[in-house]
Each structure stands twice: as structure tokens, then as C-alpha cells.
Amino acid sequence: MNDFSYTQAATAKEATGILKDQPTAAYIAGGTTLLDMMKANLLEPPQLVDINSLPFKGIEQTKDGLRIGAMERMSAVGEHPLLVQQFPAVSQSLLLAASPQLRNMASIGGNILQRTRCGYFRDAAFPCNKRVPGSGCPAIAGDNHNLAILGVSESCIANSYPGDLSVALAAFDAVLTLENQKGKQRRVPITEFYLLPGKTPQKETVLEPGELIVAVTIPTATHAQRSTYLKVRERSSYAYALASAAVGLDVQGGTIRSARVALGGVGAQPWRSREAEKVLTGQPATEATFRAAATAALREAQPRSENGYKVELAQNTLVRALQQVAGA
């Protein structure tokens, strides 16, 4: 690990100001991704700016929905009664992630910005287009067992975001509030926050240099209240999803009035499936409908040598999640 300096910022202005002068500095909140990567020599920031004192806190009901401060911790948010009541899928996505120790450390903003677990990205000895643009992607012809099948490119097949929270947030139309170095705030739907790899897999989000995540707002909705997050993995806990599904249904008289579907573990980004939602909406809440939605969700899948199983697994995961929500 390189030598680095450490500064605690008391305000957003102070924090963003430091990054204006030192663009290669890094913000640190829980540090659960950043320190791992620094220890593996994947990131070598000369300066860390601790943003834990920033006032991006609180979980409160607003007219736009439930607003969660970016500095809140995964455990506190996951267990919060308002979230459990209004957005069960979001709560579950937090509590099924990582370990209790990590959930106590990791911030919501940091979770949204966590980096891929692709083994080639995480080991500096490998070529990797995301880490060193233009160096190549050995995963495409290599160990791609855990990697993505939707939204991938010839440059990169990583699940850029490997986690759970943003999958649920994508399903339920969450909006991020960002603040830039001029102190100006903007609102970006999470479905537009992440970028597909294309030819520039190193560019993962629309975040501008120095820009901070301030808050996440999730609009209240009937389909969000009746929701679940189903996560499939090789062991029962402390593992990333091979496939996951965040789903919500508003069913009245056996007919689906509105539906929300997002998949995790299979997309280059948290994978909102409007194709599946379209199939579900207005249809009876039956297994046949769910199966048709699952087929639609995976229609564009591009499996590689070792991750072909994810097509069926993601479909079955989605069907099971829909069945659970529909009570079928």
C-alpha cells in the first residue's frame, strides 16, 4: 500500500473542495470496498477524505417517498420499520448482503458505488479493460462462471455492480440526489445512474469527478409494498448472488395492475426488466404469466463458456420471486 494522507471533512463543500485540488483523492465512508482495493494495490489514492461526518443522514418520509441519507449504514436502513413496511424487497436486499460486520460499516452511498467482484478485475496481475483500458478481457474466454449475461460487451462481461441494494432500488424507481463541487444538487434515477460497459468499461456511472451521493429517495407505491428480494447463491450467507430478483406486484382480483422487476447477478448493471413488467401488467397472476415474463427478461442474454446456467437460473429465480409475492 502506498503512503496516503487522511482528512476528515466536516461539510460537503470542504470534501468536494479537496477533490477539486486533488482529483486522484478518494472519499471514504465505511471503507469496505476502498480499503480492500487499496490493500490489493488496485487503487492508490494519495489522499483519503473521510466523509462520515457529512450530514447526509436520516430516514424520513417525504412527499416524493422515503428519503434515505447516503451516510446511513446498511444495517440501520435494512432494519428500519418504514423500509420494512413500505419496501420489503429493499430491506431484504440489504439484510441478505455481506455479513453483519460489513453491514454495520458500509454506507448506503458506498454500497451503490461498490466495485465488481470479477476475479480478473480484483487481481492486478491479470489484464482487465475495466482496470487498465485496452489491456484485454481474459474472462470472456476464461473463468466467467459468476459473470454477467445481460448488457455485456466484447470489452467487459463483469457484473459492474455485484451487490443487492441497487437491484432493489432499480426495481422501485429510486432516485439519487447528487451534489457536485459547486454545491449544486441534481436528481438521477438509479436506472440511469449506471453505465453499460460498451467500449469504455472503466466508466461505470454518471457521477462527475468529486460529485457525492447525498441521498436515495424511493417513491411509495402499492407494488413496492408487496415485494420481495430473492437471492440465489452457492452458500447460505456471505456470498454474492449468482442470480437474484427484486419484484413487486400490485394484484387486484387476480389481475396484475402494476409490476416491478429487476435482476441481480446477471447484468452488467442492476438489471431493470421493463420487458418482463410489460408481459406481467394486465395479465392474471399465474405461473404461465410469470414464466412468460421470465422468458422476456432473459431474451437478450449473451451467455459465455461457463455462465450459460444463469439464463435458466435467473428465469427460475424470477418466477419463484413472483410466486412468493403473488402468494401462489
Binding site: G119, Y120, R122, D123, F126, G142, D143, R235, S237
Partner: peptide, 30 residues
């Protein structure tokens, strides 16, 4: 039986999951 396995890249002969996050051993819940 159910989860342990170290993967070697089929071209570069280097492990791709040499960590306890990615090489899975049983957790309590298993």
C-alpha cells in the same frame, strides 16, 4: 461437497478466486 473450489484461468493458469470472499467455505447457516 457443495461449494469449495479454486478456479484456475484456463489460459493463464492463474487462480481467479484466491480470497475468502470468492473461495467459499461453509458459513454457520450452511
Amino acid at each position: 461437497a457443495l461449494m469449495e473450489g479454486t478456479n484456475r484461468d484456463p489460459n493463464l493458469a492463474r487462480y481467479t478466486n484466491a480470497s475468502l470472499a470468492d473461495y467459499h467455505v461453509c458459513v454457520n447457516l450452511d
